[in-house]
Computed example of a mutant assay.
Amino acid sequence: MRFFEDLSVGDIHEYGAYEVTEDEILEFAEQYDPQWFHTDPERADAESMYGGVIASGWHTTAMTMRLNVDGFLEDLAALGAKGVDELRWWKPVYPGDTLSIENEVLDKTVETDDRGLARLQTTTYAERASGDTEKVCSFIGLMMVARRPEE
């Protein structure tokens, strides 16, 4: 288990890969962001400035969180988050993209005897069918992390 003291400013942690499917894009969008360029592939192909159906930015953020849970958080004494700053969706995410993430520890602050706050820059990348990789999402997470118990 990694604790607050095990995180160092400047450390970079990379995780992936998450394969995005059209079915998942449509299902998420129908429930949470039912705009036509997320829910109607035929119309999106014909009329969208994106050239096809794309994932909602909120879906991209949720998939990023999945990658964080499966990678970065699986062995970290995380206690939840206080929020997210500077959320940006840089490029659309398409069916067939494979997402990966990079977390950089920006700074750390001791909050209490048993908890610290880590500011993490999370960046999500999409590997396209063409083989190109593009930045698609980024944010700064304010994560509470348990401090190492005294023995």
Rank of each mutant, 00 (worst) to 15 (best):
A129Q: 04
Y15V: 00
R119P: 01
T98W: 13
P95K: 09
A126C: 15
I54F: 03
P95T: 07
T123M: 10
F139K: 10
D45M: 14
T61F: 05
E74Y: 06
A44I: 06
D85R: 14
F28P: 05
A146I: 02
E74Q: 10
I140M: 09
T124G: 11
L99R: 13
Y94K: 11
E127Q: 15
E86Y: 05
T123S: 15
D107N: 01
L120T: 11
E30K: 15
A146K: 07
T61P: 00
E30S: 11
H59Q: 11
T64M: 14
L26N: 11
G51M: 13
V69W: 00
D45Y: 13
Y50A: 13
N68K: 00
V9K: 03
L99D: 14
D113L: 02
T112D: 02
F3M: 03
I25P: 02
A77L: 03
E111R: 02
L76Y: 10
T133Y: 11
R148C: 04
R119H: 05
A17W: 15
I25T: 04
E74L: 04
M1F: 08
E14H: 01
E5C: 07
V53A: 01
V93Q: 11
Y15N: 00
M143E: 11
G10I: 03
E19Y: 09
E74W: 04
V93L: 08
V136Y: 12
E86Q: 11
W90P: 06
A44T: 05
T64P: 05
I25F: 05
D33I: 08
T109G: 01
D45G: 13
L7D: 12
E5W: 08
G10M: 01
I140L: 12
G52S: 10
E74D: 13
H38Y: 03
R148T: 08
Y50S: 10
R88S: 08
D97M: 12
S138P: 13
V20A: 07
W89L: 12
Q31C: 14
I54Q: 03
Y94M: 10
E102K: 06
S56P: 09
S8W: 04
S8V: 09
L99W: 10
K91R: 13
V93H: 12
M1T: 10
K91T: 12
R88V: 11
V69H: 00
E134G: 12
V9A: 06
E74G: 00
R88C: 06
E104T: 04
E19I: 09
E86C: 06
I101R: 00
E150T: 15
R88A: 14
M1K: 10
